[in-house]
Amino acid sequence: MNRIQQLFKKPGGKLIPYVTAGYPSLNLTTKLVLAMEKGGADMIELGLPFSDPLADGPVIQASSQVALKNGVNTQWVLEQVEIIRKSSQIPITLMGYINPILKYGYNKFFFDCQQVGVDGIIAPDLPIEEAKDFVLLSKSNNISPILLVAPNTPNDRIRTISQMAGDLVYCVAILGVTGEKLSKEATLVKYLSRVRENSNTPFIVGFGIKTHQDVERINRLSDGAVVGTSFVEKLRDSNHPEKTVLKYVKELKGVK
């Protein structure tokens, strides 16, 4: 059983911070992940930067550009996970667009992910129509393929997606790209209840989640809240990145 499967066997909402690997600088990635864990994060989503991130808003786009300028590639991100694993067992999922993963090679990618201790993969531009090999190879390497559901995904498709994913599904909270505003309560309740009824697996929710209140709201309706853009924004404006993320994780958890 991998760390994601173990984590989601436990009841209760989880907090999942996101950070773009190699942002704001190369030497910070492992430190930021460990600081997030220290603050009480349940799982980490680590972004593999891509030149053309079409599901991301301007903040994460800009962080990807910086990371790529810093020289980040897939190999380097996997090395950071290997370093983190020396001192931490926090579940880690990578979030990456499919082209760099294809270029790295599916076989090699999933094998290497398993070797360094990655637990899950999210590919935001890979719908189930194109995900067959991806899911097969992921599972055969004991990695959870975290497939996506959107607010306009029909019920029968939610069932298919969750069945294919097997362990965990990622629900995009809004019709939009990362960093936009969260929907109204009624819309969210309706959407996430629909997912609850149709999904065979636990599900986490991301896009537009920024505050402790947002996290509480989302966690009442799902199994976990992903916070991304706000972490990147806070890092962008911070002189003490580790302290900043530690404090923000606590704030999101509602811990003094």
């Binding site: 079409l54 599901a55 531009d125 719908p127 129509e129 194109e130 607010p151 995904t153 997606i161």
Partner: peptide, 19 residues
């Protein structure tokens, strides 16, 4: 039916666009 010209083509887009 799925938009493939053998290995080329397809639908590599976020789920939101599938419907």
């Amino acid at each position: 039916e799925k938009g493939h010209f053998e290995i080329f083509g397809g639908q590599y887009v976020p789920e939101t666009l599938i419907p």
